[in-house]
Design a protein around this nucleic acid. Structure first.
Lengths: 212, 212
DNA sequence: AATCGATTTGACCATCTGGTCAAAGCAACG
DNA sequence: CGTTGCTTTGACCAGATGGTCAAATCGATT
């Protein structure tokens, strides 16, 4: 007996879509959800908006995802991982300043290429991260691990003595600012694409901050 | 004939509250509104939540403010001003590095002492600043004016040549990060009051960034 | 204490929102 | 081409939400 979608939803914990249509529609829904959730936050977004943006009717949308929250959860799930991937690559064996610059650069590219994801995340954290609390310990663990590497570099006298945690905050704040406060950045600059200048500026700041 | 509150609301454009009760209740409503709006955004906040937080009934709340949007507008109105006040004080005649450090410090204090205001603002900008668009030109004008001062300092060879706009973005991003991403910051640090360390770190970053 | 305007509230309303359901449409496979 | 099961939808529902209103209560002034 072939599985029906209904059966999948109930018993299969949303396993991968099987048919071509399912693939297409689930992708459309997630993309639409990202668009709407990142703009209005969870409570501000409506299923009608998402259905509209996905080009589907609301009941059809709920055929693919059992609830508004399920769409949101699905979007958040992969997000923190993607967001932290560049940090995972931070390598204790390589040259400190190169490594940190590479990390910051990758993070800035993430802001440039995935601003909606950044804003979805920002919206969530702003509102107290109610749907991210479970991930916080893992986040802390990863950051602590990488902070230890930075501390090693400091003890070896290879970079200036600074608080590693606040160094990460600096990089996060600086890079995410361009995605999250996009409107303000563009209004102040009066032109598009702040990212080229931002990259130059950020490299200046980090080199100076880390230099002995 | 004494003015009634109803009369005021209709014809007087919300002029200052007159009676002691009005003063107290309007203050309670604005404080409650700040609490709720900063946590859930405009669309996520409900009048019932605000009324609850203010210790009033919903109709009573609407006796003092004509609509949900009016409360929100009222909160935003003063906000951008307060937010930019420290920047206004940036003085071209004084010592560059002292001035910039003083600005950044004042801004960090604002984050520490008024995190709800910071989050209200962040929520608004995140969602495209629909209710702040009018203020954007004034913001740009002020920033451009102060950027010109920084450029003068650069031409005089008193600080390193950097892009002044991105310098301001750096300061905004860094300081507001501690208020807006409070949950994340605390989760990563595993303790309270990041502000003392943040101040030290920020001074380090800015001194290095600006040094010749 | 009587009056008059300021304040408060319970009841109510229209609209919006997340979600359901049965029935209809459609695609693939024998 | 007919069956079978996947997909889509119109109609609907219950609860939440922003907002209204008339009536009740309160407080200051006489």
């Amino acid at each position: 007996m072939r599985q029906t979608a209904k059966f999948m939803r109930k018993n299969d914990q949303m396993s991968k879509p099987t048919t071509r249509i399912q693939k297409k529609n689930r992708k459309a829904i997630l993309s639409a959800g990202l668009e709407v959730f990142s703009k209005f936050g969870f409570r501000g977004a409506t299923l009608d908006q998402i259905a509209d943006a996905a080009g589907l009717s609301k009941p059809n949308l709920l055929y693919y995802f059992p609830s508004k929250e399920a769409i949101h959860r699905h979007l958040l799930e992969g997000l923190l991982d993607t967001w932290l991937d560049p940090l995972r690559e931070l390598d204790g064996a390589a040259e400190p300043i190169d490594e940190i610059l590479a990390y910051a650069t990758r993070k800035l590219e993430l802001s440039r290429d995935f601003p909606r994801e950044s804003r979805l995340f920002a919206n969530e954290v702003l509102q107290g991260a109610p749907r991210l609390n479970d991930s916080m310990p893992a986040l802390k663990a990863l950051v602590d691990e990488k902070a230890a590497i930075v501390n090693t570099w400091i003890k070896e006298g290879r970079i200036a003595p600074i608080d590693p945690h606040h160094l990460f905050f600096l990089i996060w704040a600086q890079t995410q600012h361009y995605a999250d406060f996009d409107v303000q950045v563009r209004a102040v600059l009066g032109h598009d694409d702040p990212y080229a200048d931002a990259a130059v500026f950020m490299e200046h700041v980090l080199r100076r901050t880390l230099a002995l």
